[in-house]
Design a protein around this nucleic acid. Structure first.
Lengths: 224, 224
DNA sequence: ATTAATGTGTCAGAAATATGTCAGTTCAAA
DNA sequence: TTTGAACTGACATATTTCTGACACATTAAT
């Protein structure tokens, strides 16, 4: 696989497809769009995407059918988009390990977060270069830049920023941050995170740039 | 929902009940068993399970009756067990969003799979975005927006808005708001709510947008 | 091996934020 | 107009977060 994971969006509503495309590309993924089920299935074979976002209500071939056919040949992770209250036989087709689904309407930031989670779970790397506004993280080299300027981060700081970049605009509790960053080999006091945050802020903040927000009573959130 | 979902099995045949229990526990769930309908209903209230597996043929109270009574108070997902060929009036009671059913004899792996699907769905459903006119609440991330603009709310404010969004266009008394929002660990003066309302209004109101109405003598109502 | 530099958890005020109470004012209904 | 209800700014208290200082651990340099 090359550096930038390719995501195939199969969605007939052009507005929504375009909207998802923009969000994903801002987050550093490369994308393709198919506007109906048959085209989608073809593109899966020709493009070999790393992840598929699949709407169920599609012209020419229903999403369920696409899903079933893909699963006969491949384990590529799939995120299903469904309208709320749509009862579907599709649940049989979902593999809890490699798939996920979201009901419309959904939060684009949540989508990014799930894409990253699934890509990680499927043991393909997340995007090597992850962008989030002015912030940019290169996982391969462990370099972190703000507006192109390199900011050297310590190991713990980098771990925390990775989590934030994987989950942009989502509130992360201290417990969650510790759990993901230190993989349960951390026994200490939850408030240690506060210090890391302070230190990261001192490194990246400028007068009117303060992307790590405190959510009083809940945790922190990276805004971008 | 906490880490280990608790599943209540209501089934009078001890052999089958035990067998289901073993399978579910092997799959990582915690389980309880009730051997008749009345006991089952009691345990639903005392144990507050995350999912119920309910046989229809039960002593003391039929499964249909249990199902109906549960649904008066709760949306906990239910998987109905029926003997093959038993068409039942039960279909009225089934909510396609949160319930499922299986005919005996059944494959234990299929049971596990359905349990997971339902739990996932019930979890996701309560966590997706809830809309009410211009207001939008994301329960998972605790984000609240008005016309797309993010409004940071404090814990108490968020609790109150959640209740309003769950009960749109319904008059809620101060007592009710306090009861739901603070789960009875509130001993103070009922009028504290007034202040929360004022503060929320200051955050979300604009010139001609005032969704929280005062119902003189009764309480408040979210209009949308 | 020794020393220096860096990283990171803990702690202790200080600062910021949240929220219940209260009081004076405004408002709604009869 | 009268009366009780609701509004809202001010305040006090409690909780949460921030951040500099420190100690210990780890890494790098010699």
């Amino acid at each position: 696989m090359n550096n930038t994971p390719k995501i195939l969006i199969i969605e007939d509503e052009k507005k929504i497809a375009g909207w998802i495309k923009i969000y994903l590309e801002q987050a550093g993924f490369s994308t393709e769009i198919a506007y109906d089920g048959v085209e989608g299935l073809n593109m899966i074979h020709t493009q070999n995407p790393d992840l598929i976002i699949l709407d169920l209500m599609l012209p020419r071939m229903r999403g369920e059918e696409v899903c079933t056919r893909v699963r006969q040949k491949s384990n590529v992770p799939i995120i299903i988009l469904t309208a709320k209250n749509t009862k579907s036989s599709l649940l049989n087709c979902l593999d809890s390990g490699s798939d996920d689904y979201m009901t419309k309407p959904f939060d684009p930031d949540e989508l990014i977060s799930r894409v990253n989670a699934l890509l990680r779970r499927s043991y393909k790397q997340s995007s090597t270069i992850q962008k989030c506004g002015a912030l940019e993280l290169n996982r391969e080299t462990g370099t972190f830049t703000v507006n192109g300027e390199n900011i050297p981060l310590s190991a713990a700081q980098l771990s925390i920023m990775e989590i934030f970049m994987d989950n942009p605009n989502i509130i992360l509790s201290r417990a969650k941050l510790i759990e993901i960053a230190f993989q349960s080999n951390f026994t200490g006091y939850e408030r240690a995170i506060d210090n890391h945050i302070t230190r990261i802020r001192n490194l990246i903040n400028t007068k009117d740039f303060n992307p790590i927000k405190t959510i009083y009573g809940s945790g922190y959130k990276l805004e971008c």
